[in-house]
Amino acid sequence: IGSLMYASIFGNVSAIIQRLYSGTARYHTQMLRVREFIRFHQIPNPLRQRLEEYFQHAWSYTNGIDMNAVLKGFPECLQADICLHLNRSLLQHCKPFRGATKGCLRALAMKFKTTHAPPGDTLVHAGDLLTALYFISRGSIEILRGDVVVAILGKNDIFGEPLNLYARPGKSNGDVRALTYCDLHKIHRDDLLEVLDMYPEFSDHFWSSLEITFNLRDTNMIPGSPGSTELEGGFSRQRKRKLSFRRRTDKDTEQPGEVSALGPGRAGAGPSSRGRPGGPWGESPSSGPSSPESSEDEGPGRSSSPLRLVPFSSPRPPGEPPGGEPLMEDCEKSSDTCNPLSGAFSGVSNIFSFWGDSRGRQYQELPRCPAPTPSLLNIPLSSPGRRPRGDVESRLDALQRQLNRLETRLSADMATVLQLLQRQMTLVPPAYSAVTTPGPGPTSTSPLLPVSPLPTLTLDSLSQVSQFMACEELPPGAPELPQEGPTRRLSLPGQLGALTSQPLHRHGSDPG
Rank of each mutant, 00 (worst) to 15 (best):
Q424W: 05
Y432P: 04
T436W: 09
M221H: 11
F214V: 07
P223Y: 08
P226K: 11
P300I: 02
T416I: 11
G139R: 01
R177W: 01
H507C: 03
E194I: 04
L481P: 09
P226R: 09
L399S: 03
D197G: 10
K333Y: 09
R361K: 03
E393T: 15
R138M: 04
R361C: 08
E298Q: 09
S244A: 09
L210E: 02
T249Y: 10
L496W: 10
S286V: 11
L449I: 06
P482D: 10
Y134S: 03
S501K: 08
S342R: 10
S260Q: 11
R138N: 13
C471S: 10
A178W: 01
T180I: 02
D183V: 11
M328H: 13
F352D: 01
R506H: 09
D357Y: 05
F468P: 06
G288H: 04
L377S: 13
S236I: 13
L504C: 06
G257P: 14
S382C: 05
G234Q: 09
S209I: 03
V465L: 11
F352I: 10
R189V: 09
K186D: 04
P200G: 05
L399A: 04
K171S: 06
Q255T: 08
A132P: 02
A132K: 10
P380Q: 06
Q495D: 14
G174N: 11
S260G: 11
E365V: 07
T408F: 03
D336G: 09
S342I: 06
M221C: 12
L163Y: 12
G127Q: 03
Q362P: 10
L133N: 03
G270A: 11
G441H: 15
L144N: 07
A434S: 09
L492S: 09
S303D: 09
D413N: 07
D175V: 07
S463L: 11
D147S: 07
L406E: 01
L231C: 10
S260K: 08
Y432S: 13
V348K: 12
R316M: 03
L459T: 12
Q364W: 06
R189I: 14
F135P: 03
L309R: 08
S466D: 14
N350C: 03
K171T: 10
P511S: 05
K251V: 11
L262P: 12
R239Y: 08
E232T: 12
P380M: 06
I136Y: 01
G224P: 12
S375E: 06
S225Q: 11
P256K: 08
S273I: 14
S375R: 09
V149I: 12
T445M: 14
P264G: 15
T219Q: 10
L474H: 11
E142T: 11
F206G: 03
R246F: 09
E161I: 01
R506E: 12
I222P: 10
N339Y: 10
E472H: 13
D147M: 03
D357S: 11
E320M: 14
R177N: 03
L474G: 08
S236Y: 12
N350A: 08
G170N: 03
G257L: 11
N404A: 04
L366P: 08
L366D: 05
L210P: 01
L396T: 05
N173C: 12
V348Q: 13
N350R: 12
A151R: 04
M221V: 12
P162Y: 14
T426R: 08
G497Y: 13
T373V: 10
N378S: 14
R302L: 09
S260C: 10
R138S: 12
R302I: 04
R409S: 08
L381G: 11
L129T: 15
G257F: 05
S225C: 08
M414H: 05
Q255L: 10
N215K: 02
D297V: 14
V392W: 15
Q424T: 06
P476V: 09
T408D: 09
T408W: 05
P300L: 03
G160H: 01
S433K: 04
L196P: 03
V451A: 06
I143V: 10
S501M: 13
P511K: 09
P440D: 08
I222Y: 06
E201S: 06
R387K: 15
I379C: 11
L262I: 08
G508R: 12
L216W: 03
M425I: 09
P384Q: 14
I152L: 04
L153E: 01
G233V: 10
S236G: 10
V465M: 15
R266S: 14
Q362W: 03
V465E: 12
P162A: 08
G494T: 09
L327M: 01
V435H: 15
F354D: 13
K240N: 15
E194L: 06
T249L: 12
I158A: 12
P442F: 09
M198S: 09
S342G: 10
L481F: 12
G174K: 04
L376D: 09
I212D: 02
R361L: 07
E480A: 08
P322A: 11
P374D: 10
R241K: 10
S286N: 10
F352T: 12
F202V: 06
R189E: 03
L216E: 02
G174Y: 11
S394C: 04
G227E: 06
S433P: 06
A167P: 11
A398Q: 13
V392E: 13
S172Q: 01
G224L: 09
F159T: 01
L262D: 07
T436V: 06
A498N: 09
S349R: 08
V259K: 09
P326H: 04
A415Q: 07
E407N: 08
P223H: 09
L196H: 03
R177E: 01
K171L: 10
S290I: 15
E230C: 10
D204Q: 05
A261C: 13
Y363E: 08
P256T: 10
G439L: 06
H205L: 07
N378V: 03
E329K: 10
K251P: 12
H185V: 13
Q464E: 15
R308V: 10
R248A: 10
R395W: 09
P475K: 07
E298W: 15
Q483H: 09
T500V: 13
P476I: 12
S463P: 08
R302D: 10
S446I: 11
K333F: 11
G170P: 01
S446W: 15
P384H: 06
P503V: 06
V149K: 05
V417H: 11
Q238W: 06
R246W: 07
E473V: 12
S140M: 11
G347C: 03
H205S: 14
Y199F: 09
S284G: 10
L130M: 03
M198K: 10
S294I: 13
N173K: 10
T131S: 07
R401K: 11
P300F: 04
S501H: 13
S286C: 07
P370Q: 10
L462H: 14
R308Y: 10
F206Y: 03
N164K: 08
L144R: 11
L165F: 06
D250I: 15
A371R: 08
S203E: 10
N220Y: 13
P223Q: 08
A269V: 12
P256G: 07
R217F: 01
P479S: 08
C338H: 14
S349D: 15
S203G: 12
G268W: 07
P223L: 08
P264C: 10
P169Q: 08
F159G: 03
L192C: 03
D191S: 03
D413L: 03
P326V: 15
T458K: 13
G234M: 10
S466L: 06
M328N: 06
S273T: 12
R386G: 09
L309Q: 12
R138F: 07
P450F: 04
K171C: 12
G439P: 15
H507Q: 07
P372Y: 08
E232I: 13
F214T: 03
L196M: 08
E142G: 08
T456K: 13
K242Q: 13
T253F: 13
G127F: 01
L396N: 06
G160F: 01
L418W: 01
Q495N: 09
A412C: 05
P321L: 15
P292W: 13
F345I: 11
E480H: 15
S501R: 09
S294E: 11
L410H: 03
S287A: 06
P162F: 03
P200C: 02
L210G: 02
K155S: 09
F206E: 01
S244D: 15
S446Y: 08
L418N: 01
S273E: 02
A167R: 10
D128K: 03
S509R: 08
A371P: 07
L454T: 07
I158L: 07
C471M: 11
L153G: 02
A178V: 08
V195K: 01
